[in-house]
Each structure stands twice: as structure tokens, then as C-alpha cells.
């Protein structure tokens, strides 16, 4: 299925194929169960709309055993500290209306299932929205409070809390109906080769997953695990912050977190993971 080598010289082709298969270190076959009770689907058949991939894998499979272990127990998962902070915010009254999230939504557990279907078309707004946009919408329109910075810590913690109560549920974002044009836009962005290095998301995460690029073991770039706690920057990272870093690394002009382009890209990338379990907050390096 994967088509990485297009060498014109037949001889070089044979050499390349031999080397590629011997060096190929695909997703591992470990199983992820969180707290001994939440079964996580980390490998499954690709959704029908994916043309070039048969099986989808959570990024968890491409990390070392040590990194993987952090995610198996909430006491070891440093991302859960952000979830705890967000739980406090959930109950904290803020803004001119004197309300907290809990005033209207009750327990955070009421958000179970929400992460799995976002980004999602919002009738009222007439556009596809992300979880972070929904949170800010409640803050500004319903609480009379200031919005949180899109990729800031407070927002990312809240998205992690909302994700955590959906862990184990399969990602299932809608790509048809009113979401379709946004999804198409995201797909175009996914395959666009950007910057002076002229690399697309697909070059690295579709054509080359399982391979090493310098010191990094390439995954499929799935976002079922977001927000992700990265050992590298020791904090929870939003999907848009990750997108930005990946685009920047192609020596390209990035899009802004929260931009229409990244909303579309998030919908498309999420849809490539339809069928994997929600895993956030996950742990990556």
C-alpha cells in the first residue's frame, strides 16, 4: 500500500526495497488499557474515506515502552495534572453572569461523548467548530467572561478534561452534510506540500509512518490522543500547536491556531482517526 520509492533505475529500486523492508519498524503490537479498566482501541481498520491506508494506529504505538507506560495509569500520567486544574475551573464562577461551567452542565462527566464527535458543524454559527471554540463561546456568550487564549494552558487543560471523560469511546466525526466542504478543505491542506522543504502532512504521516526521520519514529499523526502531554516541553499541547510545529518544520509560513485552515485540518485529521478511541490526555515524547 505504501509507495515510498519511485526510483527510475531498476537496480536502485531493488536495493532500495531491500533496505527499506529490513529497516522498517512499524507500529508495535502492545495493548493500551488505562487504569486497568478503560480499553483503548489503538489499532483498527481505516475509515472508508482513506484511500492510501488500510489500518490506522494511535501515535501511542510508535513511542518507546517507557513513554507508553506513562499513559497506562492516571497517577503516572503528567497530563492528568492539567485535567485536575481544569476540574477546579469547571466549578469556578467567572464573568458577569455569576456562573461556572457546572452551573449549566453539572458534572464534567456530562461531557462524555463530546470529544469523540468534534470538530463538528454548529447550526447556530453556520460553521464547523472545535471544542476550544465551544468553550470560549460559553465563556463569552453565556458567562460574560473573557475568552481563553486558544492554545493557552487554561484552555488546553479544559479540553483535556473534556477529552478525559470520553476516553475509550471511538472517534466519530461527521464528514458529510454541512461539514463536507470544510472537510474537503482540510484534506487539501493535508496533501499540500509546503515550504522550502516541500513536504505535506501525507509525505511524513501517510507515506512514511513507521520509519525513522532522524531521531523521530514517524506515526500517522493522529489526533485521538490530544491534548498530548509532551515530555519534550513538559506541558499539555493542543492539536493546533502541534500542527503549527509540523508546518513550521517544512520551512513554511504556518497558519494560526484557531484559524479556519487549522479548524478544517483538525476536522480532516480527526476523521482519519475515526474508529480509534479518544485517548486524551495522552503522553508523547
Amino acid at each position: 500500500m505504501k509507495n515510498t520509492f519511485k526510483l527510475k533505475t531498476a537496480f536502485a529500486c531493488v536495493v532500495a526495497a531491500g533496505l527499506a523492508s529490513s529497516a522498517f519498524a512499524d507500529a508495535d503490537t502492545d495493548k493500551l488499557v488505562i487504569n486497568g479498566e478503560i480499553d483503548i482501541i489503538t489499532t483498527t481498520v481505516a475509515p472508508a474515506h482513506l484511500e492510501n491506508v488500510d489500518t490506522i494506529y494511535s501515535g501511542w504505538h510508535f513511542r518507546s515502552d517507557e513513554t507508553q507506560a506513562f499513559q497506562m495509569d492516571d497517577f503516572d500520567n503528567p497530563g492528568m495534572i492539567g485535567v485536575e486544574k481544569a476540574s477546579e475551573n469547571w466549578d469556578t464562577v467567572d464573568g458577569s453572569e455569576g456562573k461556572s461551567c457546572a452551573s449549566c452542565h453539572g458534572e464534567a462527566e456530562s461531557m462524555a461523548g463530546v470529544r469523540a464527535v468534534y470538530p463538528k458543524y454548529n447550526e447556530e454559527k453556520g460553521k464547523v467548530t472545535t471544542l476550544a471554540m465551544e468553550v470560549n463561546n460559553c465563556r463569552t456568550e453565556r458567562m460574560g467572561a473573557e475568552k481563553w487564549k486558544y492554545t493557552g494552558g487554561t484552555m488546553t487543560d479544559m479540553v483535556a478534561l473534556i477529552s478525559s471523560v470520553s476516553r475509550g469511546m471511538p472517534v466519530n466525526v461527521a464528514i458529510d452534510g454541512p461539514a463536507q466542504s470544510t472537510w474537503e478543505q482540510g484534506k487539501e491542506l493535508y496533501y499540500a506540500r509546503t515550504g522550502q522543504l516541500e513536504l505535506s502532512c501525507a509525505n511524513c504521516h501517510e507515506d512514511s509512518y513507521g520509519m525513522m526521520i532522524r531521531a523521530d519514529h514517524l506515526s500517522q499523526g493522529q489526533i485521538n490522543g490530544f491534548p498530548t502531554y509532551r515530555l519534550k516541553n513538559t506541558k499539555l499541547n493542543s492539536a493546533h500547536a502541534r500542527f503549527k510545529g509540523c508546518v513550521r518544520d517544512t520551512r513554511a509560513e504556518t497558519y494560526n491556531p484557531g484559524s479556519d485552515e487549522f479548524i478544517a485540518l483538525e476536522l480532516y485529521v480527526a476523521s482519519r482517526g475515526n474508529g480509534l478511541s479518544v485517548e486524551g490526555p495522552s503522553v508523547r515524547n
Binding site: 499540500a192 506540500r193 509546503t194 515550504g195 522550502q196 522543504l197 516541500e198 513536504l199 503549527k244 508546518v247 513550521r248 518544520d249 517544512t250 520551512r251 513554511a252 509560513e253 504556518t254
Partner: peptide, 18 residues
């Protein structure tokens, strides 16, 4: 990548600044 080419890029960035 094309190491000795200077034209025809899409969303060219200033090195790794974004």
C-alpha cells in the same frame, strides 16, 4: 527536498520561524 532551487514554493517560510 530540492537543495539548489529558489523558485516555485508554496507558503514559503523564513527558515524555521513559521
Amino acid at each position: 527536498p530540492s537543495f539548489y532551487r529558489t523558485e516555485g514554493f508554496y507558503r514559503l517560510g523564513d527558515a524555521y520561524t513559521g
